[in-house]
Design a binder for these strands. Structure first.
Length: 316
DNA sequence: AAGACGAAAGTGGTTGA
DNA sequence: TCAACAACTTTCGTCTT
């Protein structure tokens, strides 16, 4: 039986077996949301759900100190997950009427409570934004860590009044996109556009705006980060994957990757690696998974071969 | 017949006046 | 705001395996 993630589950045997090499050891890369075979590098599933606590502990005392009741504190909840509500009824918890003395105090508390939370447009905005962020990032299978980063970026953007005059959705989508870039999770802008409720133009505008106005360090998308995803789609062998990574590293040192579509570079590297390691895929197959055309694969491939001096000599 | 190659024209986004 | 520009795409004819 084979499930969508590409993990074969043998009957009567609970161990997951890699489709690429038959081994059964996997490394869980929570940061990227990927499940990677340790012997051949096949990405078995890129939608892992992390069910563990958000902290690590090594001793019992530490664990006790960190454990707490209630939901974990999270940035991706509008009021950071720690909220209390002051009810409108002048009754206490057991339903008894509250005395006039305490009533005045309650009124004061209520007033500030409302001023600081419910009536603030800031919080209303966050409420909408965080539920939208939750929807979008679940849809896209974004790991929790990156969701928190996205939430932080959104909060910063909101604080700088960048959301004014723009749709909340577009800034949310932009925050998620940037969080993916920061965490080196390969997600193209188009993938986010497909799930978002605004158009591409608005999102890319928001992306540019956030980069220029919010103090976030966003690394450029690199071809290396695409390799696990592409090579798993192409069912390439571990040695081919390693070769491709090596080629990209050299290309970057030779400074020929600047300004080029990382998909094209990753695709070309895999094409060359495939020829060298005799684990070949056609240009068409590679072009399809890397979302560039065969022509681009060819151009990158020619550039790489020329500037890295790669010779396809098979010596006997 | 499928895959690879390369020329030519078209497209969307960035940059700089 | 507009034009120049580089990267990429589309299309298509030709050569290679």
């Amino acid at each position: 039986m084979v499930n969508m993630a590409g993990i074969k589950r043998a009957r009567g045997n609970k161990r997951d077996v890699c489709l690429g090499c038959g081994e059964s050891s996997f490394t869980k890369d929570y940061a990227r949301g990927e499940n990677i075979c340790t012997s051949c590098g096949l990405v078995a599933s890129d939608r892992i759900v992390d069910r563990g606590p958000e902290w690590r502990s090594f001793t019992t005392e530490e664990r006790d100190a960190r454990s707490r009741t209630g939901a974990p504190m999270r940035l991706s909840i509008a009021d950071k997950g720690l909220s209390t509500i002051i009810d409108w009824r002048n009754r206490d918890a057991s339903g008894r009427a509250i005395t006039t003395n305490t009533r005045a105090a309650i009124y004061r508390m209520r007033k500030w409570h409302i001023r600081s939370r419910v009536h603030s447009s800031h919080h209303r905005n966050l409420g909408i934004a965080m539920s939208e962020m939750e929807r979008l990032s679940s849809q896209l299978g974004i790991p929790r860590e990156a969701r928190e980063t996205a939430a932080l970026i959104y909060r910063k953007a909101l604080a700088k009044r960048l959301v004014r005059g723009r749709s909340i959705e577009s800034v949310v989508a932009a925050s998620i996109y940037l969080a993916c870039r920061i965490h080196r999770i390969p997600r193209r802008l188009d993938e986010i556009v497909a799930e978002a409720r605004t158009n591409r133009k608005q999102i890319s505008q928001a992306v540019r705006l956030v980069i220029s106005r919010v103090n976030v360090d966003v690394p450029l998308a690199s071809a290396e980060d695409l390799i696990p995803r592409l090579s798993s789609d192409l069912r390439l062998e571990g040695k081919t994957v390693r070769k491709a990574t090596e080629i990209i590293k050299q290309a970057r040192e030779g400074r020929i990757t600047i300004g080029k579509d990382p998909g094209g570079i990753a695709g070309a590297a895999l094409y060359i690696a495939g020829i060298i390691e005799e684990d070949r895929r056609t240009q068409r197959e590679i072009a399809k998974v890397s979302h560039v055309t065969e022509v681009t694969i060819r151009n990158r491939y020619k550039e790489l071969v020329r500037s890295l001096g790669i010779a396809f000599v098979t010596d006997f």
